[in-house]
Amino acid sequence: MNIFRLTGDLAHLIAIIILLHKIWKSRSCAGISGKSQVLFALVYTTRYLDLVTSYVSIYNTFMKFVFLATSYATIYLIYVKFKATYDHNHDTFRIEFLILPSLALALLINHYFNFLEVLWTFSIYLESVAILPQLFMVSKTGEAESITSHYLFALGSYRALYILNWIYRYATEGHYDLIAIVAGVVQTVLYCDFFYLYITKVLKGKKLQLPA
């Protein structure tokens, strides 16, 4: 464990809590892409199946349960409890175009061809594009509430910090995982234009307006 990965996991946890809190407090999921949340739940479910087979640390096990529980709780709030506020018309990204290619790629490019490893690889590829429905929705509505942009900033920062963690681990332990690194770079690059808007606008108190 290193400071980059720790702050990355913390940013990830903060992002999830910001979102859950926003939906719960405002009793509304307006502006939130349920499809992205479904993809995240799929990512954690396929990645954390090893909860039953391998034990890394109490921290690792605890965080896996937290990510699984919060992602399903978020889906419950969006699709059940506050489904009246779910914005169907703007959450229209075809997620099968993300799931199927990720699965195909996981079957072709992986470290080992066994069930858990292919699912882990699938979850890595899927996570790199899971935010697209949300970014697509923000671009369609042309704007995002500031709390949603804080959520996106924390979520984007988590994988950016993981990149620093991978550099650090390669430098200190000689450990590297190219699949995670390439997917993590793609994932972070997808946030770049949002990061730019967030830093130049939201931090100056302006609303996040995306050129529609």
């Binding site: 990965r5 391998s54 896996k64 882990w120 332990e173 000689g174 450990h175 590297y176």
Partner: peptide, 10 residues
């Protein structure tokens, strides 16, 4: 350096 055996990251 070797490719990771089991995944110790979240």
């Amino acid at each position: 350096p070797q490719v990771v055996e089991d995944h110790d990251e979240l």
